[in-house]
Lab assay of single mutants.
Amino acid sequence: DLSALRVEEVQNVINAMQKILECPICLELIKEPVSTKCDHIFCKFCMLKLLNQKKGPSQCPLCKNDITKRSLQESTRFSQLVEELLKIICAFQLDTGLEYANSYNFAKKENNSPEHLKDEVSIIQSMGYRNRAKRLLQSEPENPSLQETSLSVQLSNLGTVRTLRTKQRIQPQRTSVYIELGSDSSEDTVNKATYCSVGDQELLQITPQGTRDEISLDSAKKAACEFSETDVTNTEHHQPSNNDLNTTEKRAAERHPEKYQGSSVSNLHVEPCGTNTHASSLQHENSSLLLTKDRMNVEKAEF
C-alpha cells in the first residue's frame, strides 16, 4: 500500500496539472479547448457565450486583445492532455480508494470495455495498479461463464418462442383441414349439385314461356288486323247491294208514291245487322237523297 506522504505528493502534482488545464472563465477543466490569436485557451462554450454578448469583436479576458469567431481554432494537443489527466485522476481514485477533492464528473469518461483496460497499462506502473489488474484478471474467467449461461438462457427462450410460433402455425392448418373434411358430406355435395341443376332447368323453362307469350301476342295482333281488313271488305261488298236497293226503291216510288213515303220513313230507323257505323252513315245519306228525289217527283206529278 501507498504511504500517506506519497499520496499527498501525487495529489499535489495532480492539482498543479489541473490548474494549468483549467479554463480562466469557468475555472474547470477545459472541455473542447479553443485557442485565440494571443495563444490563450478557453472552453469553446465559454468563448461563444462571451462573443454573443456583444456585437462585433470582444476582448480576451487575459490580455484584452480583440477576439472574433473566425480567429478561434481548435487545439487537439490540449484536448489530449486533458484526457490523460482524467485517466490519471481515475487511476488515483481506484488505487487509494479516496475521492479526489477537486474531482469532476468523471463517470462519463469511464469505460469498462476490454480495449480501455489494455490502455490503462500505459498509465502508471504502481503496486495498487498491479493489484487491481490481478483482481480484474481473476474476475475475467467468471465473466465468460456468466456470458455462457446468459447465452444458453437466451437460446432456450428463443427455442420456446420458436416452438410456440410453430404450434400457432400448425393449429390453424389443422382446424382448416378439419373444417374441410367435416363441413360438407358427400350427400350434401350431391344435393347441392341437384339443386343447381334444377335451378338451371327452371331458368331454361322460364325463358321459352316468355317467348311463347310474345308469339301469342303477335298472333293476336295479326288476327285483329285481319279482322279489321275483313270488316272493310264487308262494308265494300254491302255498298253495291245498297245501291241495288236504292234503284228498286226509286222504281217503286215512281209507281206508288204514297205507299213509299211511309216505308221510307220506317227504313230510316232500321239498321242492317253486321255493318259498322260507317255503313250506317252512308245509308242515312242515301235515304235522305231518296226522300228529296221522291218529293221532286211528287211535285212534278201535281203540276
Rank of each mutant, 00 (worst) to 15 (best):
S3T: 11
A4H: 06
A4N: 06
L5Q: 14
L5V: 12
R6M: 02
V7Y: 01
E9G: 01
A16M: 00
L21S: 03
L21Q: 00
C23F: 01
E28P: 00
E28C: 01
I30F: 14
I30K: 09
T36Y: 00
K37Y: 08
D39K: 13
F42P: 00
F42S: 00
C43G: 01
K44R: 07
L48N: 14
K49Y: 04
L50G: 01
K54C: 02
K55H: 13
G56S: 05
S58A: 09
I67C: 01
T68V: 07
T68A: 00
K69V: 13
R70W: 07
R77G: 15
R77A: 13
Q80P: 09
C90R: 10
A91V: 00
F92V: 01
L94A: 05
Y104E: 13
A107K: 12
S113L: 09
Q125R: 11
Y129N: 08
R130C: 13
R130E: 10
N131T: 13
Q138F: 10
S139V: 12
P144Y: 12
S145W: 13
L146K: 06
S150P: 01
L151D: 12
S152G: 14
S152Y: 07
V153M: 03
L155R: 10
L155V: 08
S156Y: 02
N157E: 14
G159F: 04
T160L: 06
L164G: 10
D200Y: 06
Q201K: 10
E202I: 06
E202S: 14
I206F: 13
Q209I: 10
Q209R: 10
R212I: 09
S216Q: 08
S219K: 13
A220L: 15
K221H: 11
K222G: 15
A223G: 06
C225V: 05
S228T: 13
T230V: 15
V232G: 13
H237I: 15
S241H: 05
N243A: 09
T247A: 07
R251N: 12
A253L: 09
P257T: 10
Y260C: 04
S264L: 07
S264P: 01
S266P: 02
N267I: 03
L268C: 03
H269Q: 03
E271F: 04
E271K: 12
E271N: 13
P272S: 14
C273F: 03
C273E: 10
H284S: 03
H284D: 05
S288L: 09
L290Y: 14
R295Y: 09
A301T: 15
F303Y: 15
